[in-house]
Design a protein around this nucleic acid. Structure first.
Length: 414
RNA sequence: GUGGGCGUGGCCUAGCGGCUAAGGCAUCAGGCUGUGGACCUGAAGAGCGCGGGUUCGAGUCCCGUCGCCCACCCCA
């Protein structure tokens, strides 16, 4: 094929200008919502020491086991492209001593994440997430805020058909006893579980709940739901969260098997799913991670957060995407080549006044210049004529009139 | 990592083994209007992902390979 030597790496995508405008629109909306809710932007490196992720996400997760882009740099450091957003934010929170200067901090981020997966609908090797992390409070009001923020944003962006799945995965006090109960329940049914789950049963029984295999699901459906084993603290936290969501008018469904692929979650775990997506139907995921800051070397600090997948938003929007206008204010056309210099100088003046302006650089005929103006969605075309006069043409109306340059500029500014 | 589907000009698609691979969109030029969008005319653009095989003959069949897509898995 005559398509060049290289193509974008597997699982990555180019975002061409037209679509890029849509991304801007969505990101701007997210920024606005997050800031309205009191979150401030944080930017962290695209890669980190690999240990940060193995430690936080968990050794026995797929993300760490087989999906991380991990490499040695020339200095022999073991680094990884970030596979998720939370660990870096927590690392930065600790590294900059924010637990002293700003112990309660609310962050948002827009970042690209990397996982070595087999691409399919809604799944890429590089994808983008918009997320928030509220670090430093154990209040269930914050869980509700984070969930509501996601929900509200998805509403605004145009995703109406969605469902919130909610669970509580307990804490270090109650989870161990639940895990014991779960193991007791699963052990006699070991034969019915898949190979992976038999192993999980030993290493990380909670993960069995997350298995999507029909045979395993059949078993785990019968399993005692975790929230019947929550300690008082977790139970009241969960109850309060449900109550708050009710007051906020956010409906949800309890999902006792929702464990999520990251081990750091405590108490709240949730996912928002879009009806319009295929197999990868989750647009948003998040939860509470009260132990993570301490685990990464900071003081005991509760926190809650979530992430929204940009590509999945685009997918579930489908054809219902807003048309973002990015047309020119004016296209500068000229009748003869010898007028190019005048046009070029005028172009600078227009642009200096903040008018979006452009002209031909290919030596095209006037006819072609107008075609181009049309294609660039120019609101006006200013035509410099050979006799020194100028004509301002309204491209929507199709009307035009002779005009002095001073008048034209005035006209274009408004 | 496993399974399935598909790879024809920039994009979409036709082509049931056989004339110089067809059409639509887009592109470019021209015509109609001094000067765009509609319409008309014309032009340029692929040798059918890549490699091998079967055959007198392959875009069409077979094998391999790469890529894309979908699903499992996992997740945003």
């Amino acid at each position: 094929m005559s398509k060049g030597i290289y193509s974008a790496p597997r699982g990555t995508k180019d975002t061409l200008p037209e679509e890029s405008a849509l991304w801007h629109h969505i990101e701007a909306l997210f920024r606005k919502v997050a800031e309205t809710f009191g979150y401030k932007e944080i930017r962290t490196p695209t890669f980190e020491e690999a240990g940060l992720f193995t430690r936080s996400i968990g050794e026995d997760t797929d993300i760490v086991n087989k999906e991380m882009y991990i490499f040695q740099d020339r200095g022999g450091r073991t680094l990884a492209l970030r596979p998720e957003g939370t660990a870096s934010v927590v690392r930065a929170y600790i590294e900059h001593g924010l637990y002293v200067t700003q112990p309660f901090s609310k962050f948002y981020y827009i970042a690209s994440l990397f996982r070595y997966e087999r691409p399919q609908a809604g799944r890429f090797r590089e994808h983008h997430q918009m997320g928030v992390e509220a670090v430093g409070s154990k209040s269930p009001y914050l869980d509700a805020e984070v969930i509501y923020l996601a929900y509200h944003f998805l509403d605004l962006v145009g995703i109406k058909e969605k469902e919130l799945y909610l669970n509580s995965v307990g804490c270090p006090i109650c989870r161990p006893s639940y895990i014991e109960k779960l193991r007791e329940f699963l052990l006699p049914r070991k034969q019915e579980l898949c190979e992976d789950c038999r192993r999980r049963l030993e290493v990380n029984p909670l993960r069995v709940l997350d298995c999507k295999k029909e045979s395993c699901k059949a078993v785990t459906e019968e399993a005692p739901p975790i929230y019947t084993f929550l300690c008082d603290d977790c139970a009241s936290h969960f109850a309060k969260l449900k109550e708050l969501l009710g007051e906020l008018g956010v409906s949800f469904e309890l999902a006792p098997n929702l464990v999520r692929g990251l081990d750091y979650y405590t108490k709240t775990a949730f996912e928002i799913v879009s009806r319009k997506l295929g197999a990868q139907n989750s647009v948003c995921g998040g939860g509470r991670y009260d132990g993570l800051v301490e685990q990464l070397g900071g003081p005991p600090t509760p926190a809650v957060g979530m992430g929204i997948g940009l590509e999945r938003i685009l997918l579930s929007l489908g054809e219902d995407v807003p048309q973002i206008g990015q047309g020119l204010d004016v296209f500068l056309a000229f009748q003869e080549e010898r007028l190019r210099d005048r046009a070029f100088i005028l172009l600078r003046e227009l642009r200096g006044k903040g008018i979006k302006a452009d002209m031909d650089y290919q030596g095209k005929s006037l006819k072609s210049q107008l075609r181009q103006a049309n294609r660039l969605q120019a609101r006006h075309t200013l035509i410099l004529k050979s006799d020194g006069s100028a004509v301002l043409r309204d491209m929507r109306e199709g009307s035009q009139r002779e005009i002095s340059l001073e008048e034209a500029i005035k006209e274009l500014i408004k």
